[in-house]
Write a protein that binds this DNA or RNA. Structure first.
Ligand SMILES: [Zn+2]
Ligand SMILES: [Zn+2]
Length: 817
DNA sequence: AGCACGCCGACT
DNA sequence: GTCGGCGTGCTC
């Protein structure tokens, strides 16, 4: 009897495919091993074995596995369990889950590029002839396609040999796409401490004698330091002195000036103050002990800690205990919160036990970490973004989900559309691990789980050390506009407070959750406003390069000074974004260094890190930004946070709009006064009495929770009801309507009033594709599994209708919107 | 994901 | 007539 292997291919294929195994291969390969298999006409794919059996397929002849790539599994049984859950719960396919799980470099295909690694000469010994041949080919061409390697060595051994070379670190794939991620550090200049006294300085100037230029440079330095105490970057200093680089460099060589970089300094500091022996405050210790005692009886704990309460120290203490027991810990963070700041802090505690898993890292680095986790033989702390829940943990005992309210834990495209917070709970239960969810503003779902007794709860309402909560005040825009107290979008009060803060040498954060200059340009004569030709949205004005842009498809056109419809020149802009605020702030505060941080100013690889560093180093006085600057960043010198237009947050067509507004405003407010001086938060709004704003001011999460939950219950929304969203997309408007209507009728027959739609979403067309939604609401008493099986049946029937073939259907379980 | 297959408009 | 663009189906 011959043997067969069921494999997952990293493609969107519904079923597992079965290949035959030779006797030899059967012994080489295990469940979880990678194999090379032929698919379709000629291509070889990397697949993963999930089942080995002797049942010959009845209706087709199984093709043979070409090659066993791993003699030991790279996918564990526990990962397969998680795959099964994700497939069933999120209605996805194994292939796409596998793709989300394995680093691409483990799934090489014919089109993959092979490239030479640096510094390989010392590893070149003991290569087989084939390995040598391939390495030579790569060396000669610097990069070749996998298919070329297969031409040289034959289909099978090409793949095998390439894999060997990759595992020996000689070649790698896709290196040009993601370079090693290393934020650049700016060099700063300061005078050697000994010359800070007048006396020593005099001696120095005397000693410099004939070196006039050097004297000048030293004097210029003191002149600058007299004006401002901000750190001086080397680059900036060089541009100001009228001398060649060698002058400054020889002063540095003599030890008169010293170079330093601020980030490194901070790490050093944190090593001295925190490494190994930091201790928790009494309230922190209480929380720590409560979490541990909860873990004795329960699996999931929700930890609500106000901003600046020192949540991270508690996590670190917990991590330490698990590491000492040689166990694995997963520390999940939203992408924006996974900053170098935080990584350094964790590394200063746990050094080489720390592994960071992040999409910014290169393909090879990710493979390396994947293998480290797979082969762990001692404790590990894995810090990662949502996809790290798919890593091959062996001995996972604790999962921390930080900022657990963050919606970026929910993946949308591509499928699997999983929520990493919820999947983490399943992951933990597979491993019999504990879960700690942290947030200053927990999601209603999590808090509801506490009320239902599913999660345990602990809170920390005291800020760490002497930090006082920021004072939050509203500014009534209606009144300010009526009394003509506005300068652009800044009220007089705000201008006053900013000026005052600047004069104290403190920093300001200005929040406006919309990028660009202005979202709509309207003709005052005929009312026309320029629309995107591919999407149903109006174009946003970007003054920086005088373009009108679509934020959905990227379409851009030059700014028109006449109305495109009637030719009138009477155009007016409506609404405002960060760019406009930046312009106004530069006018209002000409002496301040104003910078903007949003998607448009952070396109480059290091832009984000550089802006954050600039702000931390006190180079930037006023930082204007979107929600990008709300997450976890720890700015020590910020005294004032301004929200330009809170009302913009409430009007999103989304049942979570208020919850999200509360979270955003609270997080933004948390950026103010993270040290001993009490921070101030000014919220400009047309509705100062809005209940969400009032809850933010009084830190009244309970009230927000109760009010929101009443709404959710009344309108049948989560957490009471579950939601599944069906998204239909098509270029053909009529087909789309027909298809969505068909499904709507089918579902209404089963679920009647618990079906919403089909209806067009707020933006009915993106990239020339029309969109329609159907919402399936699942009442608390209705079985989710049953509902899904009805849904799957419906989708199967739908897919059998040939005229709907051109209409794409996506299923989103527990959608965010 | 590819790649073949088939349908429809444009062009030798 | 047929060349080739794209939309659709299938892969063990
Ligand atoms: Zn007009
Ligand atoms: Zn568009």
């Amino acid at each position: 009897m011959s043997y067969y292997a069921d494999v997952i291919l990293p493609l969107n294929i519904e079923n597992l495919l079965t290949y035959s195994l030779s006797e030899e291969m059967r012994h080489q390969c295990q469940i979880g091993s990678r194999v090379a298999v032929p698919l379709g006409k000629k291509k070889l794919y990397t697949a993963v074995v999930v089942n080995i059996h002797q049942n010959q397929p009845l209706h087709y002849e199984a093709k043979p596995v070409k090659e066993v790539l791993d003699h030991y599994p790279i996918l564990s049984i526990n990962q397969l369990k998680l795959f099964k859950w994700v497939k069933k719960y999120y209605l996805s396919s194994f292939g796409l889950i596998l793709k989300a799980c394995l680093p691409n470099a483990l799934l090489i295909q014919s089109e993959t590029l092979l490239q030479l690694n640096d510094k390989i000469s010392y590893k070149k010994q003991n290569l087989s002839d084939d390995e040598y041949l391939l390495l030579e080919a790569v060396e000669k061409h610097t990069q070749i396609k996998m298919s070329d390697a297969q031409k040289i060595l034959g289909k099978t051994s090409g793949l095998k040999v390439a894999n060997k070379l990759i595992s020996r670190d000689l070649i790698s794939i896709d290196r040009h796409i993601r370079r090693k991620y290393k934020p650049k550090l700016k060099t700063y200049i300061r005078i050697n401490k000994t010359y800070e006294t007048t006396e020593n300085l005099k001696t120095l100037l005397n000693n410099l004698g004939r070196a006039h230029k050097q004297k000048e440079v030293v004097l210029h330095y003191f002149k600058l330091m007299g004006k401002s105490t901000k750190p001086l970057s080397k680059q900036n200093f060089k541009s100001q002195i009228d001398a060649s680089d060698s002058v400054l460099n020889s002063l540095i060589d003599k030890g008169v000036f010293e170079e330093f970089s601020i980030q490194q300094d901070r790490i050093k500091n944190s090593k001295i103050t925190t490494a190994n022996h930091f201790s928790l405050s009494t309230p922190q210790r209480e929380v720590f002990e409560t979490i541990k005692s909860h873990f004795n009886s329960d699996d999931v704990v929700l930890f609500k800690g106000v901003t600046s309460s020192g949540k991270t120290e508690i996590y670190l203490k917990l991590i330490k205990e698990y590491l000492e027991k040689q166990q694995q810990i997963l520390y999940l963070l939203p992408e924006i919160a996974l900053t170098t700041q935080l990584i350094q802090r964790i590394k200063s505690q746990f050094a080489d036990k720390v592994f960071v898993y992040h999409s910014k890292y290169s393909a090879n680095e990710r493979v390396e970490i994947y293998r480290h986790v797979l082969n762990a033989d001692s404790g590990q702390i894995i810090v990662g973004t949502r996809s790290s829940i798919f890593l091959p943990f062996k001995n996972l005992k604790l999962v921390i989900v930080d900022e657990s309210h963050e919606n970026s834990y929910k993946q949308y495209d591509p499928s699997p559309r999983y929520h990493a917070r919820d999947t983490a709970v399943v992951l933990a239960s597979i491993h019999r691990a504990k879960v700690l969810m942290g947030s200053a503003t927990p999601s209603l779902e999590s808090f509801y789980n506490v009320k239902e007794g599913k999660f345990k709860y602990v809170e920390l309402n005291k800020r760490f050390g002497d930090v006082k909560p920021p004072v939050i005040k509203t500014i009534d825009l209606k009144d300010k506009y009526k009394r003509k107290k506005m300068k652009g979008h800044f009220s007089d009060t705000l201008v006053e407070r900013i000026t005052e803060t600047l004069s104290k040498g403190k920093q300001i954060i200005v929040f406006q959750n919309r990028r660009g200059y202005s979202p709509i340009i309207e003709c005052l004569t005929c009312g026309h406003s320029p629309q995107c030709p591919h999407c149903d949205v109006s174009l946003t004005l970007h003054k920086t390069n005088n373009t009108l842009r679509c934020h959905y498809c990227g379409y851009r056109m030059a700014v028109q000074n006449k109305c495109l419809s009637c030719g009138s020149q009477d155009l007016s802009s409506m609404g405002f974004g960060t760019e406009q605020i930046e312009h106004e702030a530069k006018d209002l505060f000409p002496k301040a260094n104003v910078k903007r941080i949003d998607l448009d100013t952070t396109r480059g690889k290091y832009d984000f890190e550089n802006l954050i560093a600039g702000f931390e180093n006190l180079e930037i006085d006023i930082l204007i930004g979107t929600q990008m600057l709300t997450k976890g960043l720890d700015f020590r010198n910020v005294d004032l946070v301004a929200v330009m237009h809170a009302d913009g947050l409430f009007n999103f067509p989304n049942f979570r709009a208020f919850e999200k507004s509360y979270q955003l405003l609270t997080q933004v407010a948390g950026r103010a006064g993270r040290t001993k001086t009490q921070g101030e938060v000014l919220i400009q709004t047309f509705q100062p009495q809005h209940r969400v704003i009032q809850d933010v001011i009084t830190e009244n999460y309970t009230n927000l929770y109760e009010q929101e939950m009443a709404q959710r219950l009344h309108f049948h929304y989560p957490p009471y009801y579950r939601i599944i969203k069906l998204v239909f997309k098509s270029k053909d408007y009529n087909r789309l309507n027909e298809a969505a209507d068909w499904m709507g009728i089918y579902l209404k027959q089963i679920f009647s009033k618990n079906i919403l739609g089909p209806e067009f979403p707020g933006i009915a067309r993106i990239r020339n594709k029309y969109i329609k939604h159907i919402i399936v609401k699942i009442p608390p008493e209705q079985s989710i599994t049953k509902t899904k099986s009805y849904l799957i049946k419906g989708i199967e029937r739908y897919k059998a209708v040939s005229k709907f073939k051109s209409v794409r259907l996506n299923v989103d379980v527990d959608p965010y919107t």
